[in-house]
Design a protein around this nucleic acid. Structure first.
Lengths: 111, 111
DNA sequence: CATATTAATCGTATATTTGCGATATAAAAT
DNA sequence: ATTTTATATCGCAAATATACGATTAATATG
């Protein structure tokens, strides 16, 4: 690939894409579901219910954390994770807003 | 990567991840915005406003179409695209439902 | 029919993601 | 102090995604 082109899009477009990318793997969707059901989990609990190695789960958790969708705190030898509902709502709201806004003014039939 | 692991997740998890993946690039977000603003567009109109080559835009359109987020019909030598609002609403609804449902029963403080 | 227009596809290079085992780190338990 | 437990990180291999130019295909137009 010659050059990175992502930077040539608006910040908002990049942010939404980043959010979507964090959700763009079934393992991460599954992790979010587990976190939501238990309110908070340590890494090992998630490893137990996913068909992935510990190191792989840890990597997915890191990506979710980097995207701001989950919080993680060290708790003794464990790491405790939970969903960052605030960030989640913000992003979902932004998506709905963007596309609902556009949808309203634009529900005509098309090709 | 040794083996594909995506299949070991539920169909719903895979579907949501697929939807998110379609949105996981700023170019595709931008394309959806252009389509929403114009109701429908031919490929060339999109190429004109994006900082990408025609072949690259065509590829992104193909991905959006495969994900079911846009419709595309051949119109003479052109291809006409528009947003599939129905599919879009379905997916957005599924996301909101999944996470709002979980959120309601689960808004406690966490780590 | 020849040619221009429009878009899809092919081939290729490069970047990123995914996944795992091995190893490192850090706290807790013995 | 050593061992156990829990997690993160490193290094690697394989799969995917991104981007483009060149080519192809299909329809218009002169």
């Amino acid at each position: 690939m010659a050059i990175h082109k992502k930077e040539s899009f608006s910040q908002k477009e990049q942010d939404l894409a980043e959010f979507a990318k964090a959700l763009a793997h079934p393992a991460r969707i599954a992790i979010l579901k587990v976190l939501a059901q238990h309110n908070e989990c340590i890494c090992g609990q998630i490893v137990d219910v996913l068909p992935l190695a510990q190191s792989t789960v840890s990597q997915h958790l890191k990506e979710l954390k980097n995207a701001g969708l989950i919080n993680g705190t060290v708790d003794g030898p464990r790491s405790c994770y939970c969903i960052n509902w605030k960030a989640f709502s913000t992003f979902m709201g932004e998506f709905s807003f963007l596309f609902n806004k556009l949808k309203v003014q634009n529900e005509k039939a098309c090709c």
